[in-house]
């Protein structure tokens, strides 16, 4: 684990020093032991600005080993600046293999999506979290929200959902949709679309959440119940799309709206680029596959 890449002799393996990694691992272990509970940790300065995934990177750096294969996605895509940079970062400082294939990865660091392909035992999903506190916008005092978690005082969460229905006729929260972990802690699943919430429930993979600026780590261990909050008469529902992916024809996946020109042309395509590419490679075709296949 402590092999020193020759050309980077001044850096420790995976960039962080061993003491820091130990400290973060202790926080991770505690987070796994108390599913959904936000564990404070001494977040370090990273060579990237806050908001670019400093929390996720520190978690990944603390758990990654030389034999791991890393995949990094940003809103489902493997090819955005953020995803490419973080992949390159770990390829350099930990000399690990990287991949864009969900199935081949042992660690997947993600910003705002869960891959469409079902994760399996042994995989770890690391979320980049901007704001870990689900009660934040209802109760600004951190002292009070911590007390509310401690006392399981979660009436306010439903106040927010009530307001949604009162204003919009349905629960209009579409991302960062609050969930209750193992019947105890209410958790912010990071700004993933609520479409992904059901994938968190009883997931075979370990899910770790790192918030760098806010210095919090939390976790959902494998096979843990993750329930989206709702009302009996307004049950939780995932986003639905009225058309399949324009590129690969997939249904029941999360789609991004892509603007094609300045004349109102647009299409809906898989947000999970790896999933889409694999399907197209397997011969699936969407309505616009011939023109748009290049991206």
């Amino acid at each position: 684990m402590t092999t020193q890449p020759a050309e980077l002799a001044t850096y420790n393996f995976a960039y962080l020093d061993e003491q820091t990694k130990r400290m973060i691992r202790r926080a991770i272990l505690k987070a796994i032991a108390i599913p959904g509970y936000q564990v404070p940790f001494a977040s370090r300065e990273m060579p990237m600005p806050y908001g670019w995934g400093t929390g996720g990177v520190q978690v990944t750096a603390s758990i990654i080993g030389p034999d791991d294969t890393l995949k990094v996605i940003d809103q489902g895509a493997d090819d955005t600046t953020n995803a490419v940079s973080i992949r390159a970062f770990f390829a350099k400082v930990a000399e690990v293999n990287t991949t864009t294939s969900t199935a081949d990865a042992t660690i997947i660091q993600t910003r705002h999506r869960i891959p469409e392909e079902k994760l399996v035992e042994g995989q770890i999903l690391v979320y980049q979290v901007p704001i870990p506190e689900p009660l934040r916008f209802l109760e600004p005092r951190e002292t009070e929200t911590r007390k509310m978690h401690a006392l399981e005082d979660y009436g306010l969460m439903h106040v927010k959902l009530y307001e949604d229905i009162a204003r919009n006729g349905h629960i209009a929260t579409t991302y960062a949709y609050p969930v209750k972990i193992k019947g105890r802690y209410v958790m912010d699943p990071s700004p993933t679309p609520k479409f992904d919430n059901p994938k968190m429930d009883q997931s075979e993979a370990l899910q770790l959440f790192g918030a760098g600026r806010e210095k919090r780590i939390y976790a959902v261990p494998p096979y843990t119940s993750v329930v989206s909050l709702d009302f009996e008469d307004f049950p939780f529902e995932v986003n639905r799309f009225d058309q399949p992916c324009a590129l690969c024809g997939a249904e029941g996946v999360y789609l991004d709206e892509v603007v094609l020109d300045d004349r109102g042309g647009r299409m809906f395509a898989c947000s999970d680029t790896d999933h889409c590419e694999k399907r197209r490679a397997a011969g699936h075709k969407g309505s616009m596959a011939s023109e748009g296949a290049a991206t």
Partner: peptide, 12 residues
């Protein structure tokens, strides 16, 4: 869809 009321809490 079930609400959290039916999930088992390990806490007394």
């Amino acid at each position: 869809m079930m609400t959290q009321s039916d999930s088992v809490s390990p806490y007394p």
